[in-house]
Design a protein around this nucleic acid. Sequence first.
DNA 1: ATGCCTATTGTGAATAGA
Length: 255
Amino acid sequence: MVSLVTWNVNSIKARLPIVRDWIAANSPDIVCLQEIKTPEFPSFEFETMGYSCLFVGQKSYNGVAILSRLPIEAAERELPDGEGDDHARFIAADIAGLHVINIYLPNGNPVGTEKFTYKLAWMDRLQRHLARLMDAERPFVIGGDFNIIPDDIDCYDPRAWTGDALFQPESRGRYRALINLGLTDALRAVNPNPHLYTFWDYQAGRWQRDQGIRIDHWLLSPETADRLEGCVVDRAPRGLEKASDHTPVIVTLRD
DNA sequence: ATGCCTATTGTGAATAGA
């Protein structure tokens, strides 16, 4: 069995104690972090816990990391076809024969600006990349902060999100196109409860009212979907002092 | 309708997040 977690930590520096304690308590095999917000990564903190660290960072914004208790056999640090794109939003590793992709997909707000067109272009590049992996019949998982609310049931009130980049037909359609490659939304596949959220805004008491959205996902290629054992959201870290606004999503695969 | 709150940079107040 192998367990993988995705977690947008909203700054690894600000979140170091919470992330370290959660990993110590839960012992995931593979950890995918987003928004580390630093060009450096505190690798030593996790190496002493038995993890190898792989990361792509930048100052102030973005940044992704993969931590693994199993040997990292190969690494990729950028999404193909991105000439001129210097955002740290993609990292991938081969671990125990599995290709693990970790993404921080652009937010895209406000709609109608170059930020939204960047989001759509980034999703088009991701579509082409995953299509090539599918054509090659390469087993993979992709986890991360997709910044997409897939369906109306994935938010507390669809009317509140109609103008948002996470909820536009253009961005949701591109997410749907990823699924239509033949990928399985792991959390939705194993949990019939519609009210599954992974993000609650800091503002307006969203956490206290449980008014969240589901935007952090694990998508599985057909081969890995056959290995799906379970997938859960751990809401506990969102309730801590100094919490990230996202909480971990854990997927478990059979050997 | 807008801001609500948090983090970064840098030590103000602006930018970004979603």
